[in-house]
Design a protein around this nucleic acid. Structure first.
Lengths: 231, 231
DNA sequence: AAATAGTTTAAACAAATGTTTTAACCGTGT
DNA sequence: ACACGGTTAAAACATTTGTTTAAACTATTT
């Protein structure tokens, strides 16, 4: 479906998604949005009441799918393994889903980069609703799956572990985004890529490498920190 | 030294540090800065040429100390241990320095929060210079220290490991900052603190807990992933 | 005391922002 | 053909932004 066949609303949502993703909420003006979507400036307020509300809709529209896919993948794994999944597989699913959903969604480039910014950012544009409806369910499914793989973990150990995993993933996402946004600035780019080796790879390979690393790193950490007492 | 005894420049720098830290570059207007520092709006441009340059100076002024302290602490450890430091101590120093420098510097609240935002952010306000002068030296000292503790690590394994550590630290910093910025929004705050248990602690205790966790987690991960061949 | 260099002040400036208004437009149903 | 709801268009609106101007002030120097 070509752009001019889509409705004004849809074109605005798509343009907003890409622009917000690559520049952040404050850095995108309504006029810029309108130009990218090839609509009138007033369209944003007509269809979405406000710029902030458009932002909210962009995020929730995409994140719902991400959430459902991740939860479903975790549940599938639980069923397939008869209740005792491999810890590395659990973490691997979570990490890969997050990376793919954020950096390489089929719906288009940019996708969910905004969410990471939102989670790390200060502006509470959507934070509470996003957290309750989107993050919390994934968090819960992830917790449950880890607990199936390592039933001896306490709830405290569990949340520390999850925080360490999420932190790593965010960092690798931000690193890729930063690299993308530096495309023009060849000097800074060269410095970054020199210090952070995996950045030179194309995106699918980057996702694979990061997934493998974070999975192996975190699995080793969990089993080193919280060894299961031999039965 | 009371505020009105300080020079206009110093008062602006201090006010800017706190405001930029808690709200981010774009969210702070020059008029807000001037009001907080109790100076005229023109003072920013008179003394610092531009808002962006003021921002640069705020960051470099503080980060230089942070950098020197961290590098010195790592070098001390190397000397004290006769060239074979404990890995956990190396990581612990790095993590603690980063957390303290960012969240709890004696110079005042807020301190270096802006740097984390800068590193994760899109705006290239100071990125390249900051990276080259401030981040790179710390990165290098940290790398060298880890390599002394675990000489068998390849350079690739080293940079993956550092990325995982830095990612975790950033995440725990952001989490604290986010909590601070949600002080008014009691509902969101309750949700966050419920899901992320260590957040309820006062700052020094939070720093201690995070340092211990990240250190233990990462040490276990390194030794689990890259076991030294028994001699 | 006059002059000077540095600093502070209030006011103005130009540009950009999110939003609203009002009129034109379009297809659909009568 | 006409009227009507929904949509788009251009223009205007009220604020806010970073920055500059030009005059007032202040202390030090001559």
């Amino acid at each position: 479906m070509s752009d001019d066949a889509k409705t004004t609303q849809a074109r605005l949502l798509d343009a907003a998604e890409n622009l917000f993703a690559s520049k952040g909420f404050d850095q995108v003006s309504i006029r810029e949005l309108a130009a990218a979507a090839d609509v009138n400036v007033a369209a944003v307020n007509y269809h979405f009441q406000s710029k902030e509300n458009l932002y909210r809709q962009v995020i929730t529209r995409r994140y719902a799918g991400q959430r459902d896919r991740t939860v479903a993948a975790l549940e599938d794994l639980l069923k397939g393994s008869g209740g005792t999944p491999d810890l590395a597989e659990v973490i691997g699913i979570m990490v890969r889903q997050y990376l793919e959903g954020t950096l390489a969604a089929p719906e288009g480039p940019g996708f969910l980069m905004a969410v990471s910014r939102e989670m790390h950012g200060q502006q509470p544009h959507v934070s509470e609703a996003l957290f309750r409806e989107m993050i919390a369910p994934v968090f819960q499914a992830f917790s449950a799956a880890i607990l199936q793989a390592r039933p001896h973990l306490t709830s405290g150990q569990l949340s520390w572990t999850i925080a360490s995993i999420v932190g790593q993933v965010h960092h690798f996402i931000m690193r890729w985004i930063k690299k993308e946004s530096l495309r023009q600035d060849t000097e800074s780019l060269a410095i970054m890529m020199n210090v952070f080796p995996p950045l030179g790879e194309p995106l699918p390979e980057y996702i694979r490498l990061v997934t493998d690393h974070v999975t192996a790193f975190s699995t080793a950490a969990v089993d080193g920190m919280f060894p299961e007492v031999a039965s």
